[in-house]
Simulated assay, not measured.
Amino acid sequence: MAKLTQEMKDLMDKGLAFLATADENGNPQVGPKGTMRVFDDEHLIYNEETGRQAWHNIQATGKAAVAFHPTPGLKGFRVEGRATTYTDGPYMENAKQFVEGTKLPQPMAAVVITVDRIVTLDAGPNAGTEIANDPVKD
């Protein structure tokens, strides 16, 4: 697994995350995920609330990419990895705790993305530079 640095985690905490997936036919989908957050140095987590297109795509392919780019800013990161859904257990408990005391809906699942690859989304000549690429071998 690739590891997130503290700089990356701090930036991710400030930016809105956009989740990209593709269905079983390769059709892309992208959308904001307001509950996306860093779980630990090697995982992201978000609360699945709708069970629609991204949910379907993750069930079908298990692949995801997440872009973080705070506005305004000239620095960002894309994280790519394998997505796994949980409807019970500690990840689901984390998702439920995340919405406590908010107006957010209760999650139908927690989605955990294992960080396999990290790429810069910086403006200028460093755009698209691969920082880490360390997928877990099945």
Rank of each mutant, 00 (worst) to 15 (best):
R82H: 11
N133S: 11
A67K: 11
K9T: 03
T61M: 07
G73P: 00
A22L: 04
L74V: 07
Y86R: 10
Q59A: 13
G15Q: 04
L16W: 05
K33S: 04
D138E: 08
G51T: 09
V111S: 04
L19W: 01
L4D: 01
F68N: 10
T21G: 01
T61Y: 08
E24Q: 10
Y46M: 13
M1S: 15
E24Y: 08
K75A: 03
G26R: 00
K103W: 05
D10H: 02
K103V: 02
V111I: 12
V30I: 12
G31Q: 13
F39T: 04
V66H: 01
P107E: 09
P105N: 10
V66A: 02
G128T: 12
P135F: 13
T5Y: 04
R82L: 09
K75R: 06
Q29W: 12
M8Q: 09
D10S: 02
A127S: 14
M8I: 07
A127F: 14
L74D: 08
Q59H: 14
L74H: 05
Q53T: 12
T84M: 09
N94D: 14
K63H: 04
H43T: 11
H43K: 10
A64I: 00
R52L: 10
A67M: 15
G15L: 07
P107C: 11
V112Q: 07
T21M: 01
I45H: 07
L16E: 09
G62M: 09
D10I: 02
L11E: 01
N25T: 06
P32F: 15
Y46K: 09
Q29L: 08
D41H: 14
Q97I: 08
D122M: 03
F68R: 13
D134L: 11
A132H: 04
A110C: 03
A17L: 06
G124Q: 05
R117P: 00
Q59D: 11
Q106S: 12
D138W: 05
M108K: 10
K103T: 05
D134K: 14
T102Y: 11
K96I: 12
V66E: 02
P70D: 02
V136M: 15
V30D: 04
E80G: 01
D88I: 13
K103M: 07
Q6H: 03
Y86I: 13
K3T: 13
R117G: 01
F68W: 15
V115I: 07
H56W: 10
L4T: 01
L44E: 03
P70N: 02
D116W: 01
T84S: 12
A22Y: 00
Q53P: 00
P72A: 04
Q6C: 01
L104R: 15
F39E: 08
V136W: 13
A83T: 09
K3R: 13
N57T: 06
M8P: 00
F68I: 14
A20W: 00
V111M: 07
A123N: 11
F18D: 05
D23W: 08
R37W: 03
G124E: 05
A95F: 08
L19C: 01
Q97V: 12
K96G: 02
T87V: 14
W55H: 14
E24H: 04
H69D: 01
P135Q: 10
P90D: 05
P135L: 14
P125V: 05
H56D: 08
E100M: 10
G101P: 01
L11T: 09
A2E: 01
D88N: 15
T129D: 06
Q6D: 06
M12L: 03
M92H: 11
P90G: 07
G89R: 11
G34W: 12
K63I: 04
N126S: 10
